[in-house]
Design a protein around this nucleic acid. Sequence first.
DNA 1: TTGACTAAACTAATTAGATTAGTTATAATG
DNA 2: CATTATAACTAATCTAATTAGTTTAGTCAA
Lengths: 190, 190
Amino acid sequence: MARNSISDELIIETSARLSNKVGLDNLSLKMIAEELDIKSPSLYNHISSLDDIKEKLMIYGWKELGEKAIDSAVGVSGYDALRKMCYAFYDYTTNNKGVFQAMLWYNKFKSDEMANATIKIFGILHKILEPLNISSNNVEHIIRTLRSFLEGFSLLVNNNSFGNPISIKESFDLSLDIIINGIKSLEGVK
Amino acid sequence: MARNSISDELIIETSARLSNKVGLDNLSLKMIAEELDIKSPSLYNHISSLDDIKEKLMIYGWKELGEKAIDSAVGVSGYDALRKMCYAFYDYTTNNKGVFQAMLWYNKFKSDEMANATIKIFGILHKILEPLNISSNNVEHIIRTLRSFLEGFSLLVNNNSFGNPISIKESFDLSLDIIINGIKSLEGVK
DNA sequence: TTGACTAAACTAATTAGATTAGTTATAATG
DNA sequence: CATTATAACTAATCTAATTAGTTTAGTCAA
């Protein structure tokens, strides 16, 4: 070791906080370095590029969200659990805008670590849906439906893209009603 | 006029083509200028910044998609029309990845022109849903549901974020089944 | 306790791209 | 043919990422 030695975790946590404040696009090594009271080239002792930080931010975000999602689904099951998890998702992504941007844009499959980033949260979804009367193939498709909706909705809210004064919470609630009713219709249970 | 004079449209069309090829993040004034056989500072006679181009690309994309969406819904109505429009959406966004990135990220409400970018396509959706037996307030919410799903799904496909070999087309189809059945359940018609 | 080792900081330099300032060429108009 | 305005150009500036090379200070073995 040498000097005060900043940990890799501190860099990511700092980047997370800063990106949530100023937006991922405006996150710079300069800014991170200043916040940590070091010079920007010193960051290269810990990371390999700005893009590297953004990838790590992506993994950090999915991990953190995964943990919150688990907490949210404790003690409930079925559609109640699904609903709680969706709210946890929305809460996290709208309260961590910068990190969520990274979660969206850097979630490509370039490495195992990246590929596994979302395993936790969508694994939970799997466990919630499994006991229902749905074919396992359809469970996979439904996870994609939910994921698309959740990521899309959060993105639109964060970007302030809904050009309409009606309540966002109501939209989210009704959307969940629609999707859940739709899933039930596949169950043949309705 | 002076010299060969490159039109604003040509700049945007060129930018669209290039961004679809290399990704919006990699689009640069240098690249656009080279493609147009001029020097990059010359672009400033037409645009005010790289961000300005990206905003225009956003508007260009929503406009182009709006036109395709109209075409897709000609001669059909109700849920058939809805389904066709969703396919048109998916087709466009996955065949124009760079432009779609701009459509997602630059769709904030900073000006009337920007606010109106999506009016056409979501207006069509409105017309499709209006005749159904749904409260007008719910129609607005449903448009948000659909929009979230469509944008989210396209983004995930374009980013290759679905880490699963099952068919993407089947996922899309089943998702539409789910959402449409869900909407029907709101109609009380089912 | 000390001296070697190494991690992690530092400064200086390089590079690339966006943007600005100031200059020049050419098409259109009278 | 002369004027004018537009849109090109070159030169210069600025900022941020990244690389190269240097220095400092914890750690650990003798």
